[in-house]
Nucleic acid binder design. Structure first.
Lengths: 336, 336
DNA sequence: CACCCAAGTGTTAACGATAACAATCAGCCA
DNA sequence: TGGCTGATTGTTATCGTTAACACTTGGGTG
């Protein structure tokens, strides 16, 4: 049994008694097609179950209607949510999304990923590049490739959309200071992450502004385990009453460590996280945290990228900053 | 300033002093090219920075080297992890991955998503279709489209890869019974999810096998909030000593509810979850749970799909079942 | 020496769509 | 009536690659 090949435009044309070009016009909503002709073509399309071949179309128009996304570990809540927002916005705009998840964000991996996508003919790329090394890779983009970075780059060559990390950290720190804590300890993210850097900077500046001592930050790696280790150390120090963890998972680890050591949260120690993952509301106690609107980030990315694609050339670099939110729950209380 | 268009095969050919077909042969590792010629071509490719146009290639070979993935809410840990595994495996095999995330899994959304991907010319699709409605949509696939379902379908027309939900639930339930609990309560997932169904069935069968009473399950929706509500109800009942929640997030809610009500976990009540999300290890107390190897699922999906694609036609339907793991932590203890 | 074979290479024709241009036709105006 | 205009349609070239086939060589064989 031979497999029937799918119908092509000229099959439709033959059935409708027109030329393939007229079919093309119908499909692309050109004016100057008689309603009657259009109806006949549509009927033929229906009858044959014709679907146009977007690959052929992409070849001749040199536009694939596909956007590439390069991201680090898409199982993390932040990247996953951002990509979700990107995909929704892209689809609404009529674009497909091709994703490459990297295990490491060194410059050459990112470059390779972008090359890989460029080969496939994507019309533009979004790079969810929260590490400094990745941001550097963006400086050597294939020429003419529209690109947007998320949380990405200091340089002005590439547009970027990011959540205001510094402000988020300041909100968290000030909240704790306002509760009467004399200072705030910080469990930081990995130092090569731009987000970690921003949160560190916001925390530090809020403390300095208030004239408070700035304790040595404890280095973490975003994982609950690192938070747990940091928590154990903090629990062993007397003077600690307030902790700002650079993300919710580490805050969970800190919480766990304190609980194990018999330190009451929030009565003896207050904790604030960052991200507002869905679980945070149900930690024991529910976590006060900084909320990030990843959906908005995704939407903005697509907007900026599509503007670049439509402009068909380099336009002025945009930098969009999404403000953070703050959610007060039960892990913070006035200083003891 | 005119933008130079990227070099094409014939540019390379001209520079190397050969025909474009020879360039193609070099690129596709055909035999019958003199090493010297090959070297000359490679040099020309390097010099021009030539990258082959995969769109044109896809048109003539009618294979796009792209796989489509249709998934429900990719911000959930399970789908996100599965997709990550799929993407890694696909890329290793030389395939791109195009993703569509759905907000709802009714049959027509799934069908539309598959159509959309088919239009783009994907070589096959993976449907992460954990709902019964989505599974139904798979029965009306475009003819000749290779497809694999994750956790998908009862029918035999489409291959599927899934984790043995029933066995996972049995492990959880038996673990609690072995600890001396007289029976086990269950907070279930939404009834139209196949995974929820499997976990319910496994739990019920383990109880029946042991000759224990089967309490009415409490209906949840995977969210910590639902677990919390269920936990509150369970805490008000005297006879409850063991709870099996259908996922870790609900287990977290249950934990939270008990903690709030002053019920000690695991001393007074034992809890088991399902998934082993990264946070589970650091709940208070750390959660005993069923581990799912999402990576393996992703890998198997790609294997099955590529086999179908290479066979170039319907081959015998495969059904791959990945065994679950079990992680004992501190949320379970002998019956009081 | 004629012949054949295989290796290496070039030539031409697809793939299935869109773009550019040409052709037809009717209506309108001078 | 002749020619112009705009709407509608058809014809042909084109995108950049691979497939199919044809053409050279050089060397071995009868």
């Amino acid at each position: 049994m031979t497999r029937r090949r799918p119908p092509v435009m000229s099959d439709v044309a033959k059935l409708a008694g027109v030329s393939h070009q007229t079919v093309s016009r119908v499909l692309n909503d050109h004016p100057n097609v008689r309603v009657e002709t259009r109806a006949r073509v549509m009927a033929a399309i229906d009858e044959l179950g014709y679907r146009r071949n977007l690959v052929a179309r992409a070849l001749v128009t040199s536009r694939s209607n596909t956007l590439g996304v390069v991201s680090f570990d898409t199982t993390l809540y932040g990247p996953a949510s951002t990509i979700y927002g990107i995909e929704q916005a892209a689809r609404t705009a009529g674009y497909f999304v091709s994703i490459v998840s990297l295990k490491s964000l060194d410059a050459s991996s990112v470059r390779d990923a972008i090359e890989y996508l460029a080969e496939q003919g994507v019309d533009g790329v979004v790079v969810v590049a929260p590490q400094r090394s990745a941001a550097r890779a963006l400086e050597t983009l294939p020429v003419g490739m529209p690109a947007v970075a998320v949380e990405g780059t200091h340089r002005s060559e590439v547009s970027a959309v990011c959540i205001d990390q510094i402000e988020g950290a300041r909100l968290a720190t000030r909240h704790l200071l306002d509760l009467g804590h004399s200072t705030v300890w910080h469990v930081s993210g990995p130092s090569d992450w731009l987000e970690a850097e921003g949160r560190l900077e916001g925390w530090r500046s809020a403390l300095e502004e208030a004239g408070r001592p700035v304790p040595e930050p404890l280095a973490g790696d975003w994982s609950p385990r690192a938070g747990y280790a940091a928590g154990k150390r903090l629990a062993s120090m007397d003077e600690v009453t307030a902790v700002f963890a650079a993300n919710d998972q580490m805050a969970l680890g800190v919480l766990r460590a304190f609980t194990e050591e018999g330190v009451k949260v929030p009565d003896e120690i207050s904790i604030v996280g960052f991200d507002d993952i869905p679980e945070s509301e149900f930690f024991s106690p529910p976590l006060t945290t900084v909320r990030q609107d990843f959906d908005a980030v995704g939407r903005h990315c697509i907007e900026v990228l599509l503007r670049q694609i439509q402009a068909q050339g380099p336009i002025s670099t945009e930098r969009l900053i999404v403000p953070p939110g703050f959610v007060i729950r039960a892990s913070t209380a006035p200083a003891p």
